Simulated assay, not measured.
Amino acid sequence: MSAPDKDYRMPNGGPSIASLPKVSLHDHLDGGLRPETVVELADEAGVTLPVTGGSADLDRWFVESATAGSLTDYIATFDVTVAVMQTESALQRVAREFVLDLAADGVVHAEVRWAPEQHLRGGLSLDQAVEAVQAGIDEAVSALADDDHELSVGQILSAMRHADRSLEIATLAVRHREAGVLGFDIAGAEEGHPAGDHRAAFDLLAREFLPVTVHAGEADGLDSIRGALLDGRALRLGHGVRIAEDIRVIQSRGGQTTVELGPIASWVRDREIALELAPQSNLQTGAIAAWGADLDDHPFDLLYQLGYRVTVNTDNRLMSATSLSRELALLTQAFDYDLSDVLAFQLNAAAASFLPLEDRDDLADRITLGFEAV
């Protein structure tokens, strides 16, 4: 269930979505393990799993446990995956398989986020953990290049927002910026843990000109987004879906619809601050509960039609039993999107990536050529 092998296609006999070049900006390393890998690593590490029926039952457990309607319950499932990712070999294997699975889904650029501070129980240092993940990434990218599959991958190091190591992780990110790290993030329990608690880390990153994305507007609302923008100087918002709380849709008696943007919504749109939207995850965690419980209720299309830099992401492929192709297929069904819309989402993601300008332009050209070829 974590990496569906269904051939998702565009409507009306359109091309396979997996064949289209895609960009993944918001995908957690500890949320993208293969279920069979979790079973094998758990056996090696002596970790007791919540179910004993093998990888299929474990796969089912992850999805069912994550679909509890709250971010807190969703996050709890990571106790299992993090527990089996405490050695260099485990981190390297998980990273290698993570990248290979992205490539199989047609991803051509990925920014993989994870929290090194959660992977030190086996005695690893922060630097050793980062180097192990990079080794797995490099191994996969090299193997793919041998098969003529070009894929660029960078790390985004996350600090846990409820902990006190953000300055240390920010320093770590700066230290590895020439060795695979593209940016910084804060993740974890959002409500009650504002970005302002990590101001020292964000100040350092600003001085060092290292890009920042911040989880905001998922389990908390506009105050969280404001903090991400002001305290975090975020260039992207992780999820950010609750920016829609600052958008007022007015229906007139004559049937005409007008829209009023509040100051935060205006700032995010006008400055083209990317929204890292993850539709299936947003449904599981209740992030869109104010608008409804189905994908048709998701503010995604409202934000897209209003000109926001929307991007499509998986968040956690294991917990949401999803892939980027599946997310795009479900959106096309829900909102009647065509190939030009899917291309727009990929170009948005390319423009919002933390790559240098020249690489972003090259990525956009490659994506456009790939879409034109189908």
Results as ranks from 00 to 15, higher is better:
365 D>N: 14
250 I>H: 15
317 R>F: 09
113 R>N: 02
261 L>Q: 12
244 A>F: 06
202 F>M: 02
335 F>P: 03
46 G>I: 04
323 S>R: 07
291 W>D: 14
329 A>F: 09
63 V>H: 12
89 S>F: 00
114 W>D: 08
109 H>S: 05
283 L>C: 03
362 D>Y: 07
357 L>M: 11
15 P>I: 10
45 A>R: 03
291 W>S: 15
163 A>C: 11
239 H>Y: 10
373 A>M: 04
318 L>T: 10
185 D>A: 05
139 E>C: 13
84 V>P: 02
3 A>M: 08
299 P>K: 11
98 F>H: 15
348 N>S: 15
74 Y>F: 15
270 D>G: 03
282 N>T: 05
131 E>F: 00
281 S>P: 03
266 S>R: 15
207 R>N: 15
74 Y>N: 12
221 G>S: 13
149 H>C: 14
215 H>N: 10
124 L>N: 09
2 S>K: 06
81 T>K: 07
64 E>V: 05
9 R>M: 08
196 G>E: 15
47 V>E: 09
279 P>T: 12
48 T>L: 02
347 L>D: 04
313 N>V: 04
231 D>H: 11
137 I>H: 10
236 R>E: 04
258 T>H: 14
38 V>W: 11
35 P>N: 07
207 R>P: 00
68 A>P: 00
305 Q>A: 13
355 L>V: 04
287 A>H: 07
350 A>Y: 01
172 L>S: 07
179 A>K: 13
328 L>I: 08
242 R>C: 09
302 L>D: 11
29 L>Q: 05
309 R>P: 05
303 L>K: 02
107 V>G: 06
202 F>T: 02
35 P>E: 08
152 S>E: 14
29 L>D: 07
108 V>R: 07
237 L>I: 10
349 A>E: 09
272 E>Y: 08
144 L>M: 03
104 A>M: 08
296 D>L: 13
130 V>P: 06
163 A>D: 14
33 L>A: 14
111 E>V: 04
344 A>I: 00
203 D>V: 03
353 S>V: 01
266 S>L: 14
332 T>Q: 15
222 L>D: 10
11 P>M: 11
240 G>V: 03
60 R>L: 13
328 L>P: 01
5 D>I: 13
